[in-house]
Design a protein around this nucleic acid. Structure first.
Lengths: 209, 209
DNA sequence: GTTTGATTCATACGTTCGTTTCATTCAAAC
DNA sequence: GTTTGAATGAAACGAACGTATGAATCAAAC
C-alpha cells in the first residue's frame, strides 16, 4: 500500500488524537509528530488548528449523515408511516456502522463524536454544517407523524435522547472501572441494545400535562 | 448578605467557568479574575488547578449522590421490588433537582456534569470518588432484581443510557439552533420527559440473542 | 506594642502553545 | 538547463498557560 499523502496522514493523526484527548488537549505538535509531518504542515494544508478540526469533523460526520438520509429515503419510499423501531434504526444505526479501520470497535469514533458535540470550545459550533440540521429535521417530521400526541418540545427532547444514548454509549471509559462492568462492548451487541432501548423510549406514551 | 470568603468565591467562579468552557478551556487567571481574587489564591487554597476542579466536582456531585442514595433507601424500605418508574425517578431525579441558585434552569449544572464525565483530560478520572461507584452498584442490583432476564452487560448499558439522557439532555446548545427547537427547557418539564422516556426504555424486554 | 500565623498581593519563571517566516527541496513545464 | 509553483523543513515569534516566590497586609493572641 502506498503511503498516503501528508494531508491525509495529518487528518488520520488528528482524528486519533482529537478523539483521545479532545480538541484543546491535542497540540498541533503532537498531531504532526504522529503524522510524521512537519509542524508547519498543518498551517499549510488546513490554515489553522480549528480548520483542521473542522475537516476532521466533516470527514467523520458526513458519511453518517448521508447514511441517515439514505435510510430515511428508503423507509419513506415504502410507507409514509414506518414503525418506530425502523425509524430509530435508520437514525441511530449509522452511528454504529461508520467505524474506520483501526478503530477499536468504534469506541474511538464514538468518543470523537462526543468531542465534537460536547466540546465547549467556541469553534466547536462551526464543526458541523447545515446538512446535519436538515437530516435531523427530516427525522423530526417522520417521528412526529408516527408519534402523534407528542408536543414538538418533547419530541425534540426524545431525539436528543437518541443522540445521547448512541454517542455517550461508551463514555464509561471515562469513569472509574466498576467491577462487573466490562468496559468495551462488541459493536454489534451495543447496536442491538441501543435500538431496543431507544425504540421503547421513543414509543412511550406522551406525558399527560 | 455577607460576601463569602475567597475560597468559596473561587469555587463559585470555577464552577461557572468550568461548566461554560470546560476544564482546559478555563484558565486559572480567568477564575481568579471572576472571583475577584488574586492569581495565587488558587494555589494557596487548593494547591493546583486540578485539585480545584476536584473540589468543584465534589461540591456538585456529592449532594446528587446523597439524594440518589437516600431515594433508594426510602424505596427499598417500602418494598424490595419497586416499580421501574420509581427506580428511574430516584436515580435520575436528583440530577434535575440539584441546581444551585443562579444556575439558568440547571443547564449550567448539566453542562458541568457533562464536562466532568466526558472531559478527556487525564485528571478527570480522579474527579469523582468511590461513593458514586457504590451508589451505581446499588441501583444496578435493584434494577437487576426487578428486570430479570437482562444480562449484566445490557443492564449496565441501560444504566449508562439513563445517565446519558439526563446529563446530555441540554447538550443541544452546542449545536446549531434548529428552527422550532426551543433551546432551554423548563427544568420541571424536562424532568418529567426524562422519567417517561427512561422508564419506557428501562422496561423494554431484553433482546433475544 | 509586639508577635504570630493566616491570607493576599505583585511579580516572575519556565514551559507550551498556535502561528509565522523564510530557506530549501523537488518534480513537472518550458 | 532553466524556470516555476507546490510542498517541506528548521527555526523563531509572541502570547498564554500553571505554578512558585517573597514581600505586604491584617486580625487576633499575648
Amino acid at each position: 500500500m502506498a503511503t498516503p499523502d501528508t494531508r491525509t496522514q495529518i487528518l488520520d493523526a488528528a482524528e486519533h488524537l482529537f478523539a483521545e484527548h479532545g480538541y484543546r488537549g491535542t497540540s498541533v505538535r503532537a498531531i504532526t509528530k504522529l503524522a510524521g509531518a512537519n509542524l508547519a504542515a498543518v498551517g499549510y494544508h488546513f490554515g489553522s488548528k480549528a480548520e483542521l478540526m473542522a475537516a476532521v469533523a466533516r470527514r467523520v460526520v458526513e458519511p453518517i449523515t448521508a447514511a441517515q438520509c439514505a435510510g430515511l429515503d428508503k423507509l419513506l419510499a415504502r410507507t409514509p408511516d414506518p414503525p418506530v423501531s425502523e425509524l430509530v434504526e435508520a437514525f441511530a444505526g449509522p452511528l454504529f456502522d461508520e467505524m474506520p479501520a483501526g478503530d477499536e470497535g468504534g469506541a474511538r469514533t464514538s468518543r470523537l463524536i462526543v468531542t465534537i458535540l460536547s466540546d465547549p470550545a467556541e469553534e466547536a459550533r462551526r464543526w458541523t454544517g447545515p446538512a446535519e440540521d436538515s437530516v435531523r429535521e427530516r427525522y423530526f417530521a417522520a417521528f412526529a407523524r408516527v408519534l402523534p400526541g407528542l408536543s414538538p418540545e418533547e419530541l425534540w427532547f426524545r431525539m436528543r435522547g437518541i443522540f445521547a444514548v448512541t454517542a455517550v454509549d461508551r463514555l464509561q471509559v471515562h469513569q472509574q472501572p466498576s467491577p462487573g462492568c466490562v468496559p468495551p462492548v462488541a459493536g454489534e451487541a451495543a447496536r442491538r441494545w441501543a435500538i431496543t432501548f431507544l425504540t421503547a423510549a421513543m414509543s412511550a406514551p406522551p406525558i399527560r400535562s
